[in-house]
Simulated assay, not measured.
Amino acid sequence: MRLVVARCSARYTGRLTAHLPLAKRLLVVKADGSVLLHSDGGSYKPLNWMSPPCSMAVAAPDAEAAGRGVTEVWTVQHRKSDDRLEIEVHDVVHDSAHDLGVDPGLVKDGVEAHLQELLAAQIDLLGSGHTLVRREYMTAIGPVDILARDGGGATVAVEIKRRGEIDGVEQLTRYLDLLNRDPLLAPVQGVFAAQEIKPQARVLATDRGIRCLVLDYDTMRGVDDPDSRLF
């Protein structure tokens, strides 16, 4: 992982257009190719980013940009779309690289682990005809919660969260990118399953062709029977 603290501006073009004016920011370049721009506020979410598969090229600025104080231009191009992130780097305060090694993956808390177990046992909640392939299907960047087949034999990858937010959709997107490179699995459909799915996460999932599934934890574990409710 490379960490750069610098004054920079950025412009994202493609499915949307966004601009970040000149300011001091943290630029993160990960081993999987993703590039993220962070500020010192706004919690954990980046201001802008490019997810893999993508490639990054670093070039010297043209005369006009150099006159504005630009020292480097980073161009991050998505390999499957026209999406592009262009970063103009001015003054670099810090630049370091770190080998983080292989991450063991996220350890689920009790509820998420139990949701995974329950959904594996009630796989028909994904739809009639679905069958379980396995839980914790390992990929190069971590385990997919559930791998299944639909009634037609197509592969289905399921990411499970207690609360479904944008980060979970991004995580499932990375898994799908990898799984769809395997000719024995492709094409792989994605299902984002959670007890609650935030509107922004649902919009992003729909845009990426990922199906959303809301899980009723109490019903799945037999605590609450919807058929016996009065209202």
Rank of each mutant, 00 (worst) to 15 (best):
H98S: 12
P61Y: 00
L26E: 08
V70F: 04
R221G: 09
Y137N: 06
I210N: 03
T71I: 09
V35M: 08
Y175R: 03
E117D: 11
G101E: 07
P199Q: 04
A157P: 00
T219W: 13
V214P: 06
G127E: 02
S128F: 13
L172K: 02
V169M: 03
S9D: 09
D145W: 00
G41L: 11
M138Q: 12
A205H: 03
M1Q: 13
A97V: 14
K30Q: 13
L100C: 10
V92T: 14
V89W: 07
D109T: 05
V203F: 09
L172R: 03
V133K: 09
A120E: 07
A157M: 01
V158M: 05
A6C: 10
L132D: 07
D91H: 13
Q195N: 14
A63Y: 06
E86N: 06
G41V: 13
C212S: 13
E196C: 07
R2S: 10
S43F: 10
L20V: 14
G151T: 04
L27E: 02
K80Y: 07
T13M: 05
H130W: 09
V102P: 10
Y12S: 12
L213S: 06
G209N: 02
T131W: 01
V4M: 13
Q200G: 04
V93L: 11
M138K: 15
H130Y: 12
A194E: 09
H94W: 11
K45W: 08
P226E: 03
E159G: 06
Q77A: 08
H38R: 13
L178W: 00
R181T: 07
G67S: 12
W74L: 10
K45H: 11
A60G: 11
D91P: 04
E112N: 08
P53L: 00
P53N: 00
E196V: 12
D109A: 03
P52D: 01
M50S: 14
E64I: 10
S55E: 15
D103T: 06
L36W: 14
V203D: 10
L27T: 07
D62L: 03
L27Q: 08
A121Q: 12
A120H: 04
M56N: 07
L22T: 07
T13Q: 08
G101M: 00
A205P: 02
W49E: 15
D150N: 15
V93M: 08
G105W: 04
L230S: 11
V191T: 09
A97C: 11
G42P: 02
I123C: 01
A186F: 04
D216M: 01
P199H: 02
E112L: 06
H98P: 03
E117K: 13
T75D: 02
A63W: 07
L27A: 10
A205W: 00
L185T: 01
P53I: 00
G151N: 06
I197K: 07
K24Y: 05
A23I: 05
D216E: 11
E196L: 14
R221Q: 15
L115V: 05
V191A: 04
L47A: 10
V29T: 12
L26F: 14
E170G: 09
L20G: 05
L213P: 08
G33P: 05
D218L: 13
L106W: 12
W49P: 09
A120G: 06
L178A: 00
D32W: 02
K108T: 06
